[in-house]
């Protein structure tokens, strides 16, 4: 598909989309938002880019294999879930830092988990979109 409007607009919109997806991810810490929507927005940015410039260009823009994103995302969620094992607590127990970090407040293992979700969702969506666009 060749659309001048889309291909021009997406160059400007892409950074905004990605920033917004990170914003959603961090906002999900305490308010509506989170890794899932964040990941979807990030995937939407790359999907639009691929619509304008082709799936090959989309893959080049992404730089990493979406499959690896899924793997690392799952790994991150697993690590965040297994951290409480070290203190003898069950899987997925939330651990919170005692002193507040700037901007996001008390960080904890749920943020790590959400980051993993973000990567899994973005990677999985892009995997499906790319494979549908390519054959």
């Amino acid at each position: 598909m060749q659309s001048l409007i889309l291909s021009t607009a997406i160059r400007l919109l892409m950074p905004l989309f990605l920033l917004f997806s990170v914003f959603l991810l961090l906002r999900g810490h305490n308010e509506p938002g989170g890794g899932f929507v964040g990941g979807l927005v990030a995937a939407a940015a790359f999907a639009l880019y691929s619509l304008a410039h082709g799936a090959e260009a989309g893959r080049r823009m992404l730089r990493v294999d979406p499959r690896l994103m899924v793997a690392f995302g799952l790994m991150t969620t697993l690590v965040s879930g297994m951290l409480p094992f070290f203190s003898g607590q069950p899987f997925l127990t939330s651990l919170w830092s005692t002193f507040p970090a700037p901007v996001i407040g008390h960080a904890g293992s749920p943020l790590l988990f959400d980051t993993g979700v973000y990567l899994v969702v973005a990677g999985m969506s892009l995997l499906i979109i790319f494979s549908l666009m390519e054959d």
């Binding site: 294999d65 793997a71 799952l74 790994m75 697993l78 297994m82 899987f91």
Partner: peptide, 19 residues
Amino acid sequence: LFLPLLIPLVTAVLGLLAW
């Protein structure tokens, strides 16, 4: 109780990494 769930999941992730 968690191990029978964690082991296949970890193996699947490692398998993804070794695609």
